[in-house]
Design a binder for these strands. Structure first.
Lengths: 212, 212
DNA sequence: GTATGTGAAACCGTTCACAGCA
DNA sequence: TGCTGTGAACGGTTTCACATAC
């Protein structure tokens, strides 16, 4: 329908706007202007209006945006209005923290299966989910209609786990391993890379501001 | 010295290059071309050369880059050649996973203190680090010369924890809480935002490719 | 011959400034 | 009057294409 290309970074801002709108809604605020929202998010009013304009006209001139309505629309755009079914691979420190991660469950994201390669972890129950072996991936992903695979294994295993997930038919992968994963174009990948962010921080701490 | 502005995104790529160079070094490879490195990282050869050119001339025309040497130079640029001292705030699921996170310790990042607000967590020992109460932050950060504060508390506490860390004198903050943190300009912040990445993934899964 | 380093061009995203509307 | 929606200007990043050096 819309032949306009939307910058991915605009999408990430929508997620931030939604977060702040949810807080405003909780506080009982009814209306918000792009200026005030920009203040809260640390952005620029024109940018907020542009980001929203990619998807429609949600505001009222001279007034602003109705908090509830805008939040609803952004959630619809992001696809955050549906329950997403996640499968975790790698139930180590990070993996088990993700299973218990409140910001996920608070937001309609639900882990419905967990897998691990270590025999002693199979059968463990975390947050009501029983850990299965890696070779159950194919069956369980299909059985439980899992759309998103979450990778929390060591970097050297990440690619082979991704291959299994793709073969099993997931549509998306959220990868926490510090590794570049290759996969078919029809599967979407997002990387969450702690080490990279820490490197960037250290660069900024190392380099005088004038050189950045 | 260099009056050229360097795109932050180029820095994040340097981190990725370093990761692959380390793998190449392990495999005993001596030389790499921008083309082959681009293949591994999923990028563009010209971009790699541009990124490196911001900082100097590290290659040999007609040959490529010496793996060991380039890795050394990139680590120097990123400030990854020194040991960084980290302090963790919030020893919940995520926090304790971070204390045990191998990719950090493998790379010269060391947690030297941990803090939490919950009384029953004080005194616990994780990875040899004893959990201290929040009001020890000021003293411990200075005592242990901690440069970077890592925030792994619930979103509603993130700002107040950041304030404490700033007052205690950290230079940088790595924030895992899904919240925007305000802090003085002289303190650098990087956010690691799982939920945002998951939202972006779901957007892509929701929206037909033609509209993106 | 081959691969780097680099201006120039193309591309993309942000900000400005104002028209349009309640 | 006040705030949105948006074309146009701006600034920054990526890609191209080739001179340069081994």
């Amino acid at each position: 329908m819309e032949p306009v290309k939307i910058p991915p970074i605009a999408i990430s801002r929508l997620s931030v706007y939604a977060r702040h709108l949810a807080l405003l809604e909780q506080k009982g605020e009814e209306v918000i202007s792009s200026g005030r929202l920009a203040n809260m998010c640390g952005g620029n009013p024109a940018q907020i209006r542009k980001d929203l304009a990619y998807f429609g006209e949600f505001g009222v001139r001279g007034v602003g945006y109705y908090v509830k309505e805008l939040l609803f629309e952004i959630r619809k755009i992001l696809g955050a209005d549906k329950k997403w079914r996640l499968g975790l691979v790698g139930v180590g420190n990070l993996g088990s923290a993700l299973l218990r991660h409140a910001p996920f469950s608070d937001r309609g994201y639900a882990f419905v299966a967990a897998f691990d390669g270590k025999p002693d972890r199979i059968g463990m129950k975390i947050e009501g989910i029983q850990v299965e072996p890696l070779n159950s991936i194919n069956h369980a992903i299909q059985e439980k209609r899992i759309e998103i695979g979450v990778i929390a294994v060591k970097p050297d295993l990440a690619q082979s786990v991704a291959n299994r997930l793709v073969r099993a038919g997931v549509s998306g992968i959220l990868n926490f391993a510090p590794a570049q994963i290759q996969c078919p174009l029809h599967v979407c990948i997002e990387n969450v890379d702690f080490s990279l962010k820490l490197d960037m921080l250290c660069y900024r701490l190392t380099t005088p501001e004038s050189n950045r």
